[in-house]
Nucleic acid binder design. Structure first.
Length: 572
DNA sequence: GCCGTTTTCGGCCCGACTGTTTTCAGTCG
């Protein structure tokens, strides 16, 4: 059972935390964090790579010493170095360090001076007035610590927000801010369209910075003002979401956007590159000596660095800078390239709208087709269809199709893949359909081997077209079923099957890393919403965004084709 | 601890805000 990438990255980050408390060389500490980040970005299992004696040292930020540590973790699931560190620092000092405003230095002081080992003990000491007597701490810091502890226990640690959750909170705030701030844009991981965001970063140009900042901290959903300066402020909203804003002059807007959009590793890589050419990059522009060369737009920033413009979704330092240097960035998929949705439900099962309502909404979105794909009978909870009910829907669609001009309702099903890998409905009804998407809803806990075999077996069915929500994960709720993604992708390519990017923001399944892997393996994908209502059809933008994060273009997606061409692709 | 088109040592991105200080350390992004 290979150790997962996340487990290895966690161990390395934990080592870094302890080394920080010990006050070791910051660059040495960073190397653990950099290696962890590299590992998290891989689509392959690094412990498997290590087992197969692949050259993991050729990966960026992993050298001789780190490779040995990774091999040790892969072999034993543990790292002796970390076990030793844990003995030196008992309790849960790492939890203390996770609190806002408390870094390694202060954590160390708290531990050494007051023997504080947990958030509980910290709370007690703060309440008893012991903290403010320490050097470098005061009354204000004590109050901030207590506030943070309250926030921490309320949120149960730091939960990240899903894209649609963040959107719902930030859009009204943006309308409010626009009254006093010019050219305001959302930057950060939200602009890069990461599937979840930790906070929201805003960049704008203020007419009157002081007044603009006053306006910002006075927004009526602000619960705490964390900092309030002339060019930078930070608040926490009632919903628990932190919002940071940065104001600059108009001539620096591009530089500020670039800097605040990140990712951090992307901007650091750019700055390093600039430095090698004797330039300096900061949030105000690009400088050579005192001379300012660019800064108004992101485009001119990249140009001055000798790079193609890099779209936000690609800014993860995963090869995009090298590609931009060689003018080899991919042309990315656009929302308008999508010609139709291939996974939707109606009130025939657990959807909220009728077939007619869904079809009309899809046509109004500008689609030329959309597929109805109800659950099959096994999914009784959702009222899945049996053969007879499906036949009835097929006739209903035929009738409706006669009436709708320049639009096609595709007859489909989301048929369940049973535990033995057979499908929940017989072939003689599946062959009546235009599209068969297949999914797992039960027996998610099978062993990796069994789960993989189950899916591969299902793909042998000649009517299998698309594997829906391939990993079954739910963001912040459950991880997907254990299965061998490499095998599944290989089989899909061999059998003329496709994988879905499920755009539901609770799922985002496949995720960006899997999508990138699919691109490398030449597997084509479908982007669908799994809509259960008219409103859900809008989710398509999240799927498109993830496809862009996975470097995909129009040709990599099957539902950018006309129905005529798509029909050909679905033939096996 | 990593890395190399000034290579095996000596660098490692850059700036704002806060609180506790009289000039700055700690933290954050």
């Amino acid at each position: 059972m290979p150790v997962h990438n996340k487990e290895i990255a966690d161990i390395l980050n934990e080592v870094a935390d302890y080394l920080e408390i010990k006050g070791k060389n910051e660059y040495r500490i960073n190397s653990y964090r950099n290696a962890a980040r590299t590992i998290l970005g891989l689509s392959e299992s690094i412990s498997k790579m290590a087992e197969d004696e692949k050259d993991i040292q050729s990966l960026s930020d992993i050298g001789e010493s780190m490779a040995k540590k990774i091999a040790e973790i892969a072999r034993t699931g543990k790292l002796k170095q970390l076990e030793k560190l844990k003995k030196q620092f008992p309790g849960s000092l790492r939890d203390i360090m996770k609190l806002e405003q408390l870094g390694p230095q202060r954590t160390k002081i708290l531990y050494e001076e007051l023997n504080i080992e947990s958030v509980e003990e910290l709370k007690k000491a703060a309440t008893e007035g012991k903290i403010k007597k320490l050097e470098g701490f005061g009354e204000k810091t004590t109050q901030n610590i207590l506030k943070e502890i309250k926030q921490f226990s309320y949120k149960g640690g730091s939960q990240r927000f899903k894209l649609h959750e963040a959107e719902e909170i930030i859009q009204p705030m943006l309308r409010y801010l626009e009254k006093e701030i010019d050219d305001i844009t959302i930057a950060g991981s939200y602009r890069r369209m990461k599937e979840t965001v930790g906070d929201i970063d805003l960049v704008g140009a203020g007419k009157d910075a002081q007044k603009a900042m006053e306006h910002f901290v006075k927004y009526d959903e602000v619960q705490d003002v964390l900092s309030h300066g002339e060019s930078r402020s930070s608040v926490r909203l009632r919903a628990g979401l932190q919002v940071d804003i940065r104001l600059v002059k108009k001539k620096s807007l591009g530089a500020a956007k670039l800097y605040f959009t990140g990712s951090k590793v992307h901007t650091v890589a750019l700055r390093k590159m600039a430095k090698e050419n004797n330039y300096k990059v900061n949030e105000y522009g690009i400088y050579k000596g005192k001379k300012r060369l660019a800064g108004k737009t992101e485009k001119e920033m990249y140009e001055k660095l000798g790079l193609q413009y890099i779209k936000p979704e690609l800014r993860e330092n995963m090869g995009e800078i090298e590609a931009a240097q060689k003018d080899k960035l991919p042309g990315l998929l656009k929302l308008k390239n999508i010609k139709g949705d291939l996974h939707t439900h109606t009130h025939a099962t657990d959807g909220k709208n009728s077939l007619k309502e869904m079809a009309e909404a899809a046509r109004e979105k500008g689609y030329s087709y959309f597929a109805v794909t109800e659950h099959s009978k096994k999914v009784s909870m959702a009222g899945g269809l049996d053969e007879k009910e499906l036949e009835k829907q097929i006739r209903e669609i035929d009738e409706l199709n006669k009436k709708m001009k320049n639009f096609k309702i595709i007859k489909g099903i989301e048929v369940d893949i049973l535990e033995d890998g057979t499908l929940d409905l017989p072939d003689d009804i599946l062959k009546e359909l235009d599209l068969v998407i297949c999914a797992i809803h039960y027996n998610m806990k099978l062993s990796k081997k069994k789960q993989t075999r189950r899916i591969l077996k299902a793909m042998e069915n000649p009517y299998f077209n698309i594997l829906a929500h391939p990993t079954g994960r739910m963001i912040n709720k459950r991880s997907g079923y254990d299965m061998d993604m490499d095998e599944v992708m290989k089989e899909a390519a061999d059998h003329g099957c496709y994988l879905e990017i499920n755009s539901n923001p609770d799922r985002i399944d496949l995720n960006d890393k899997h999508i990138r892997k699919a691109r490398e393996k030449g597997v084509k994908l479908a982007i669908s919403t799994d809509a259960h209502s008219i409103g859900n059809l809008e989710y398509i933008k999240y799927g498109v965004a993830q496809a862009r994060r996975g470097w995909l273009g129009k040709d990599d997606i099957i539902n950018t084709r006309s129905w005529k061409d798509l029909k050909e692709l679905l033939k096996r």
